[in-house]
């Protein structure tokens, strides 16, 4: 049963991601992005990463995607605008991308990956993440705050009217 659900989610992510990339209508792209994000959250749940799954939904679906939808709805005539994805040098691109894909698949299959020793009980990861964030990774938490401060200042600078 679990396996079936996994493959359903997997297909959902793959198909919706392709729609995002290949759709000629921006609105279709944005709404299939919704399916991609939710599918990825499902994969996180399969990995027992409950906190990550919730974060994925709250931040990507709840925040970023809504922002994107608003951006599109509020922009004049963007729905009618045709996006071109006709790319130049298709053959060369296909060869290069195909080669990279082949190497990736072959190496991923041939590599023996270190596996987690116990795949047993579900245990909430929230406590561990909290302890790590305010323990080993405390400094990175603080650095991220300076980074966000800089991004905020920069965004305000770019957005304000005067020079």
């Amino acid at each position: 049963m679990g396996e079936v659900i996994f493959w359903v989610i997997w297909a959902l992510v793959a198909v919706s991601a392709m729609v995002v990339a290949f759709s000629k209508n921006l609105v279709y792209s944005v709404f299939s992005l919704l399916a991609t994000f939710i599918g990825v959250a499902g994969i996180y749940i399969f990995l027992n990463a409950d906190f990550l799954a919730v974060t994925q939904i709250v931040i990507y679906v709840g925040g970023i995607l809504v922002l994107l939808v608003f951006g599109i709805m509020l922009t004049n005539r963007i729905v009618v605008a045709k996006i071109t994805q006709s790319s130049l040098q298709r053959t060369t691109g296909l060869v290069v991308v195909g080669a990279i894909f082949l190497v990736l698949v072959l190496t991923l299959l041939n590599q023996t990956w270190p596996l987690a020793t116990s795949a047993a009980e579900f245990d909430s990861t929230v406590n561990n993440i909290g302890e790590l964030l305010f323990g080993d990774y405390l400094i990175l938490f603080e650095v991220a705050s300076v980074l966000l401060l800089g991004a905020l200042i920069g965004a305000a600078t770019l957005a304000r009217k005067e020079l």
Partner: peptide, 19 residues
Amino acid sequence: ISIYLSLEMVSIMSYLLAG
């Protein structure tokens, strides 16, 4: 993680300054 975070810090500030 510290490599990636500080690399992004450098990059994002560079984007803002270039524009």
